[in-house]
Design a protein around this nucleic acid. Sequence first.
DNA 1: TAAAAATAAATCGTTCACGATCTAATCGCA
DNA 2: TGCGATTAGATCGTGAACGATTTATTTTTA
Lengths: 150, 150
Amino acid sequence: MTKAENPSHEDLMKLDNFLCFAIYSANHAFTRVYKPLLDELDLTYPQYLVMVVLWEKDDQTVGNLGEKLFLESSTLTPMLKRLEGMGYISRVRDRADERQVRVKLTETGRDLRKKADNVPYGIANATGMEPAELVRLKQEIATLRTSLLK
Amino acid sequence: MTKAENPSHEDLMKLDNFLCFAIYSANHAFTRVYKPLLDELDLTYPQYLVMVVLWEKDDQTVGNLGEKLFLESSTLTPMLKRLEGMGYISRVRDRADERQVRVKLTETGRDLRKKADNVPYGIANATGMEPAELVRLKQEIATLRTSLLK
DNA sequence: TAAAAATAAATCGTTCACGATCTAATCGCA
DNA sequence: TGCGATTAGATCGTGAACGATTTATTTTTA
């Protein structure tokens, strides 16, 4: 057995060997790279993710958004209120089931998509990775997430 | 060129194809997996990372911790005050350079390491990945982080 | 069909996380 | 040596993020 296959306890307790820390810090790094691009759209990074979900499929419930983004209503409700305040979305109780709130893009919200069109390219560029590599790594991490959540 | 190598714009705009989202949501997933393990130690996930850095090398400045964790003093100062309040660390101005604050483990903080010993194994287990795989993926993500930050 | 259980959001309190700004200490160099 | 520039932390305001709880509605079931 090589060392890489069987790290010592001392090795395991070093921050630089933590997979979780690599992900934690890469997440912060992404936030920083997105910042200047999203400032143009007056969106924060989490707000941008909500908009991406809505651009993909308009008119979703809070719970629906939460499932896709892995977020709770206690996180989403204030965020959605901010997006509503900015005029990008509307929040309306479902008439058929008054427990649910339907989130829809406004005209302004739909239009914002055009301005956001180039964002993914800026990000992909910042990673310095080939498209195929990005897809592979993304898939590996998504699989990891699934393992962690079950 | 295959599709994977040259995704369409429509594909790029789908949340599930975002590398950043894979990382964002994997990070949340890690936080959840750590929660029950760290509750035993009365630590939050970011606090645990600070302790890991200190267990690796005691007596560091705030700036030093920030460099390793990629965090600002505005994030660290309140966190460190909480850890101090819990009795795990002490914060003392450096006598030679009064601008700096030296962060040291207390006896209790050092002892906590024993209780934390099994945490990495619980996490590694939750990933469902082989040690060698974990190391490889961790390294890939660390490299990505470096690209993003430069 | 009325009461109990379940569901969907919202609210509240706590903790990160950052940028902008502030204060205090040290350094550089004229 | 002294004063301007730099550096190290701290503070403040804003926005995630969560768990626990609450409120309102719907569904189940007794």
